[in-house]
């Protein structure tokens, strides 16, 4: 193999004069985590609304929610990010468009909005499946007690549904973290972008990408462990465990 390994490269100072390559990679990791958390929050809030709408008794709400999901599911994330980042500013009134393009953290914000909306459709589908898996007698019992529709969702259906879908939701959060890497195409300096940039400056391709790989695996491990703990705390005695 003609490749020259140099694991000390991480401690060399990068072209910006101040940070080592390791520093830059860790900064990238920080941006990855920050973007993922913000996008996930957005996805949860929107996804819950749409997921509930998907199971509503009002047909127009159901149809609207279905189309929402279809739109965000059938276009690749990368294309969606391009639409938000490149196309949206052009479609708005010139002053607004200009303001958007010059926003200080435009890549970050676009990534959060684009990724958040993309994932919200998936959260909505998981929630819908969760709600539909609850025995219909539960909804009937809540209604029979006099609980209004919103109360039934808030106190019976949603608490049950979220516990049921905790494992698939964890997967979707992990997907969110992975998907942040797509935002490097719109200029977000997350982990993969930093690894690529390090590779371009130092030609130490495999060191750079190995570091990124290790960091992604580490984040993955942390999230999975944390979710095991959360699942254990939230388990309903005898309800899901028996499955």
């Amino acid at each position: 193999m003609n490749y020259h390994w140099n694991w000390h490269i991480f401690w060399d100072v990068s072209p910006d004069g101040a940070n080592s390559y390791l520093d830059l990679l860790l900064q990238g990791l920080l941006w990855t985590v920050a973007t993922a958390l913000c996008a996930w929050l957005l996805a949860l809030v929107l996804g819950t609304c749409v997921g509930v709408a998907r199971t509503a008794r009002v047909a127009p709400a159901r149809r609207l929610a279905k189309w929402y999901v279809e739109v965000f599911r059938n276009v690749p994330l990368l294309v969606q990010l391009f639409l938000w980042y490149f196309v949206l500013p052009e479609l708005l009134p010139p002053a607004v468009g200009l303001w958007l393009k010059q926003l200080h953290y435009s890549s970050f914000l676009t990534a959060v909005v684009g990724l958040g909306l993309f994932m919200s459709a998936r959260v909505a589908e998981q929630l819908r499946a969760g709600i539909e898996s609850i025995p219909p007698g539960q909804r009937a019992a809540a209604t029979a007690l006099g609980l209004a529709g919103s109360q039934t969702y808030r106190h019976v259906l949603l608490p049950l549904a979220f516990r049921i879908i905790l494992p698939p939701l964890t997967s979707e959060f992990l997907n969110t973290i992975k998907n942040t890497s797509t935002a490097l195409t719109i200029g977000l300096l997350e982990l993969t972008a930093q690894a690529r940039s390090m590779q371009e400056f130092t030609f130490q391709v495999f060191e750079a990408f190995t570091a990124a790989t290790v960091l992604y695996l580490a984040v993955n491990l942390c999230v999975v462990s944390a979710m095991h703990y959360v699942e254990a705390r939230l388990v309903i005695p005898g309800f899901i465990v028996r499955k």
Partner: peptide
């Protein structure tokens, strides 16, 4: 008041 065949207590 209504009582159901499958009890339908809220498990959580």
């Amino acid at each position: 008041g209504m009582v159901f065949q499958h009890f339908e207590l809220f498990p959580h």
